Simulated scan of single mutants.
Amino acid sequence: MGNIYRNTPNIAGVILLIAIFIEIAGFIIVGKQIGVLATLGLIILSMVAGFVLLRVQGITLLTKMQSELAAGHMPDRELAHGALVIIAAILLIIPGFVTDIIGLLLFIPQIRDLLWKWVSKKMIVRTSFSSGFTKNNYDNSHSQTIDLDAEDYHSSDPEHSPWRKDDDNKRLN
């Protein structure tokens, strides 16, 4: 019987483990410099700031998105900024000084713009629209459309449908 467990480490797990060790090292360094209580106070303060900034920035970005939609523009930049603000707030809420620094940097609009420009260059958005009246050019054997002939179905009077309740039939008359 073969081995069902993977022997190679998961890269995301390795990165998470490294991030945890970096945060612990940050706690130790800051704790030595300013003391344990001050370190705990900074952690709690950053969590509260994350919640407050998430609320304030989220409402601001929501109104910007609404105004962009009202003007007829696609709010792609505002959506990206909103996602980055949510990530920044989550990074502030997570205990740790390195995540706090990254979170605070993401609250700066110019940094969000740089990230959006970098991501938008690497991203391809594909959209398609079909009116439903075009002939498909692919094999219909995999389609979920059922094509019935005229003798395969029949229509009936909707007043005498078995799916209607008696009171519905009375109201129709």
Rank of each mutant, 00 (worst) to 15 (best):
G2D: 11
R6S: 15
R6L: 09
N10F: 06
I11P: 03
V14K: 13
L16P: 00
I20L: 10
F21R: 06
F21D: 00
F21V: 14
I24A: 14
I24M: 12
A25K: 07
G26T: 09
I29C: 03
I29D: 09
V30L: 04
G31V: 02
K32T: 05
Q33H: 12
I34W: 04
G35E: 00
V36C: 09
V36Q: 13
T39K: 02
L40G: 10
I44M: 02
L45S: 12
L45H: 08
V48D: 04
V52W: 06
L61K: 06
M65D: 00
H73R: 14
P75M: 00
D76P: 06
R77T: 14
L79S: 03
A83Y: 05
L84I: 00
V85P: 02
A88L: 07
L91N: 03
L91K: 01
I93K: 14
P95V: 00
F97Q: 03
V98N: 01
L105H: 01
F107K: 00
P109K: 06
Q110F: 15
Q110L: 08
W116Q: 10
K122H: 08
M123T: 15
I124L: 12
T127G: 12
S128R: 12
F129S: 05
S130Y: 09
G132V: 01
F133T: 10
N140P: 12
N140D: 14
Q144D: 11
I146S: 03
A150S: 08
Y153S: 03
S155W: 15
D157P: 03
P158W: 11
P162S: 01
W163V: 13
K165Y: 09
D168T: 12
D168P: 02
K170H: 11
R171C: 07
